[in-house]
Design a protein around this nucleic acid. Structure first.
Lengths: 247, 247
DNA sequence: TGTACATCAGTGAACGCGCGTTCACTGATGTAC
DNA sequence: TGTACATCAGTGAACGCGCGTTCACTGATGTAC
């Protein structure tokens, strides 16, 4: 919090040169660079407050600008409203999410270890980008309808991509599209439950600290076993037998 | 909304006697009765606003009293703060939840139909007590720490009760407690996902209307297939092999 | 049943506060010559 | 390189608003005799 009270310009200086590494000449920054920095300071201030337990609906423009070290009116140089800042946070957080998926898809897909590896990547990302995941978890059920729908669509999109990936596995080749979506949804919801557990464990201890290694290991264990249990069922499913009446 | 603008006393009259059914004598109500009615009007006003898309953090004491047809100061005759009203709503909503569980546990547990029946009961309860479930879904991730923890504990308690129930099935007799909890958690989270889908589908159409019968049938189908898939895995699980390193 | 008094649910005015938004402004950065 | 002007990120004061909370009050309900 006191970190964020520094003005953007002081952030700039302290971040760019130590008193000994360069001469005393003031560091010149282009307007574009400073602009980008202030924008990021606003986004970071919002993420910090969300991570400290506030809900998105409790964020106020004044508190965000105060934490970013900027006058309230400056906010409008960057966003027309808090809703717009929220959408920028969705964009930023979804970028993190996509980076995680890319990493999870790459690498040798040794079939036995794919679950262990996926869970490890997921938990590592939540640990290292806790604020983004906390935001996504909150936005999913915020009072802001636009945010909520954007997020839900993103999750649905993700599930259908996973369904496409799953269709490539030999055991799943005969499954109907509808059943593949059902399975993908189950996997995604299990992952989301793991994320919620991580954030919940983090919130109980020192604020903004992650869960203890023991708590994280327990979450990993439960999540892996859930995914393994589901995987065990796959060869025994007869696609179509239980199919939806709709669709 | 205009319904709630009626004062508690006018609610009383219009609810208790029609112009023809009784004589014109004003209906006498004891203080205790009126007290109970106003309290309920406050709780209902809050539930209505939550169901219309507000988050718990956006509720204000003044808006709740306005909707309940009462002066702001009257609020304090019933609750010390909005947080206390929130806890009263937890109590009320959890009562609905427990009633549902009781109904689900009773009745012939014909093993083949237990999934179909459970899902039908779940969706019927969400349909008929939508406001309570909407509140529970929101409180789970509200900015209010007490509410959040109360709810999470309630869900954990429910999962461990379900684990106890599951232990009675012959196929599960050999499972470790830890694995039973993992399975129960997976079932509970799948149920919660179904509740979220119901509320989400409701919120998209006319506000405060439930999902269309088609949408509800689709949710039922997906949920049933998820639960069936999980059940298929149970006989193939070797408890202990994948056990947690913690415990 | 009738009277005198007590209780207490609900009122309405007042308060100070933090909020979102506006506005004319300042002064550093950028540019044209 | 030096000068004159334009741009524009950020300021700080002001506004009206809805908020939570307080207070002395009113008048219907309840009770003792």
């Amino acid at each position: 919090m006191s970190v964020n009270r520094r003005t953007p310009s002081s952030r700039t200086r302290s971040g760019s040169h130590g008193p000994s590494s360069r001469a005393s000449a003031p560091v010149r920054r282009s307007q574009a660079e400073r602009r980008q920095q202030t924008r990021q300071a606003l986004l970071d201030a919002a993420l910090d407050q969300l991570d400290e337990g506030a809900s998105f609906d409790r964020l106020s423009l004044r508190r965000v600008t105060r934490a970013a070290g900027v006058a309230p009116a400056a906010f409008y140089r960057y966003f027309a409203s808090m809703d717009e800042l929220g959408l920028a946070l969705v964009e930023e957080s979804v970028r993190t999410l996509r980076a995680m998926l890319r990493e999870a898809r790459e690498g040798g897909a040794s079939p036995e270890r794919v679950i262990e590896r996926s869970v490890a990547i997921l938990l590592a990302y939540v640990r290292d980008h806790r604020r983004h995941f906390a935001f996504l978890a909150l936005a999913r059920s915020s009072g802001n309808a636009v945010l909520r729908h954007t997020l839900r669509n993103e999750i649905r999109l993700f599930a259908s991509e996973l369904a496409t990936d799953l269709a490539r596995f030999p055991v799943l080749r005969e499954w109907t599209t509808d059943d593949l979506l059902m399975l993908a949804g189950l996997y995604v919801d299990t992952m989301i439950a793991a994320i919620d557990s991580m954030l919940d464990a983090a919130a109980s201890g020192v604020p903004s600290e992650g869960p203890t290694p023991e708590a994280e290991a327990e979450i990993a264990s439960v999540t892996e076993r859930r995914l393994r249990l589901i995987a065990l069922a796959i060869p025994h499913w007869r696609s179509g037998v239980h199919a939806s009446s709709a669709a």
